[in-house]
Design a protein around this nucleic acid. Structure first.
Lengths: 149, 149
DNA sequence: TGCTAAACGATAATTATTATCGTACTCTCA
DNA sequence: TGAGAGTACGATAATAATTATCGTTTAGCA
């Protein structure tokens, strides 16, 4: 028989070593139903009716926990501080999720035509950017030094 | 003969209808020499020796002016707030520079192999994302309604 | 050179996020 | 099933990033 959403969430949490709390369940359920890239504030507003006593801080902490364990993803890992691109010509970036450093990647040819074709009619395209996220060499080395196995 | 950097900057400002001020000249010159995606704070530190009385607010205002007129670009225009991606499968985003709305684009095939090949050795790739920036249909319509010509 | 509008600098205010700390809940094991 | 340990929660203070305000200064132009 089909397992319930709750059972699936409990299973997920067990895999990730997370305590199953009512707040986490509700936040996860609601986020999965919001198909428009919500901010923490918007998630808070959404769960508030069901969890009237929840704190915004809990929403932040829970979202971070989910991102860290991979239950959800962040659309933009570099908010928080504006970053300037002095370089004129088009090139992709590598963004380190640990130290936030941005590294220019050498130019390459993506299929921009196909990409632009996927933009809804009536939208005005201004710039296309590609980004690779991960952990940079520096951080990997640092991590290895700290936790040798 | 070759025109000086100052002359070129004055020319640029004239094209964009910007007053040529000493602060703007210095900020522009320094930003163009920083090849590592600086934050406003870092730009401030960099120009401070030459402009001891400059205010951090001026750096912010100047950078915004430059971004608006297209003299420089912002690496990440995601508005100061974390955004969640509930969607599991890979797809590109359209980001409206005016209202900051994020729209999912339908999936398409980019040359991810070539892109990954451009990542420096020793970096760990976690996720590749593509983003198209521009003005969404809503905002375009709104703008047209406000300023019909 | 003198006027007008825009830019600057100082600083207060706002917004987004994180830290702290006492209380409450989950999980495990007897 | 109940007690204890440890994690999570809620309230709120603190911090970081950014923006607004306002009086003074400067650039652009007649």
């Amino acid at each position: 028989m089909a397992e319930s959403f709750t059972e699936r969430f409990q299973q997920l949490c067990r895999e990730k070593n997370l305590a199953v709390t009512h707040q986490r369940l509700v936040i996860y359920r609601e986020v999965m139903q919001m198909h428009n890239h919500p901010s923490p504030e918007q998630v808070y507003d959404r769960v508030k009716p069901e969890l009237p006593s929840i704190s915004l801080a809990t929403v932040y902490k829970t979202l971070h926990t989910f991102v860290e364990t991979g239950l959800i993803r962040e659309v933009s890992p570099h908010h928080g501080s504006m970053r300037i691109e002095p370089n004129e010509h088009r090139h992709p970036h590598f963004l380190c999720l640990q130290c936030r450093a941005i590294t220019d990647l050498s130019d390459h040819e993506l299929d921009f035509a196909a990409l632009k074709a996927s933009v809804p009619a009536g939208f005005q395209v201004e710039h296309v950017s590609t980004e690779v996220r991960g952990i940079c060499g520096n951080c990997l080395a640092k991590n290895a030094a700290q936790a040798p196995n």
